[in-house]
């Protein structure tokens, strides 16, 4: 019982760190594509008196990447249902030209305003609608959640690291006499701390396996049934097999740092 408890005290905080890391990786991957979607889906509406070309708009502002005309006939037929053909023609002649304009990258509200001004300077352009506020508030909320998550994971990581080192100290205490005797007979650090390294590395493997199991479950069982489009479509991004290597690497690094910290904190020859 004590054996299991001792290992759990070590494995659980280690798992907390690994879960945090994996969660962050997954979040980053899924949200990357969501962000991309936000960017790609974004367009400005440009209303012009005469037809314009992409080149022309690019000269006005280099951020403009795509230009798509909205069919005028379609607008007229929707607006002017049941109107005579002649009237329709007149409306069509009076109707300005509408375009959806896409940008090359995500830009803040100020930059959007500048594009609007640049375009409106040109006399052929009547009006530019940026939809700036709704776009940037969605994006900002997103960035904020991401930031909170990072802070939370970072905090959890620090707390867990402390718990790991504490548990390491308990182990060191349990093995203290043996380590001291070995030291007096000139055993090098690696030999003295051998037991600690062994348990720590063993636990690092266990924690990695358990964390991977949790994520494989999330990937194959939970995500598939979640009904969240983003998760179902991007299922392959949820847990990559290479993540196991990343997690194992981090786990080993952490436990080795923990062992060294504890072994070297045993300082001073004086009694």
């Amino acid at each position: 019982m004590k054996f299991i408890k001792n290992h759990l005290m070590f494995i659980l905080p280690l798992m907390a760190i690994l879960l945090g890391i994996e969660f962050y990786l997954v979040f980053d991957r899924t949200t990357d594509s969501y962000e991309k979607g936000l960017k790609e889906g974004y367009t400005m509406l440009v209303v012009a008196k005469k037809p314009v070309t992409l080149q022309k708009l690019r000269q006005l502002n280099p951020h403009i990447a795509t230009l798509e005309a909205i069919k005028r006939e379609q607008i007229v037929s929707e607006v002017a249902q049941g109107v005579s053909k002649q009237s329709k023609k007149e409306i069509l002649a009076a109707l300005p030209y509408f375009y959806n304009v896409g940008l090359d990258s995500y830009l803040g509200t100020a930059a959007l305003e500048k594009i609007k001004k640049d375009l409106e300077k040109d006399s052929t352009i009547k009006r530019v609608e940026t939809f700036g506020s709704s776009y940037s508030s969605a994006y900002r909320l997103f960035a904020f959640i991401k930031f909170l998550l990072k802070v939370f994971i970072g905090f959890m990581g620090v707390v867990s690291l402390f718990l790991i080192i504490k548990q390491m100290e308990i182990w060191k205490y349990a093995h203290r006499e043996r380590m001291q005797v070995m030291e007096i007979f000139g055993a090098p650090l690696m030999l003295r701390a051998g037991v600690l390294f062994k348990v720590a590395i063993f636990d690092a493997f266990i924690a990695t396996l358990l964390t991977s199991a949790v994520f494989l479950y999330v990937k194959f069982v939970w995500a598939a049934q979640s009904g969240i489009d983003l998760m179902m479509q991007k299922q392959d991004d949820l847990f990559k097999m290479t993540d196991m290597a990343i997690l194992l690497g981090v786990a080993l690094l952490l436990v080795i740092v923990a062992v060294y910290t504890v072994v070297f904190s045993n300082k001073g020859v004086q009694e």
Partner: peptide
């Protein structure tokens, strides 16, 4: 150096200092 030096010493303790789990 101390570690090296100690490998050339044979020390016998008043309180034995054996490793009890070995």
């Amino acid at each position: 150096q101390l570690q090296e030096l100690r490998t050339h010493m044979g020390i016998i303790f008043q309180d034995y200092k054996l490793i009890n789990e070995w």
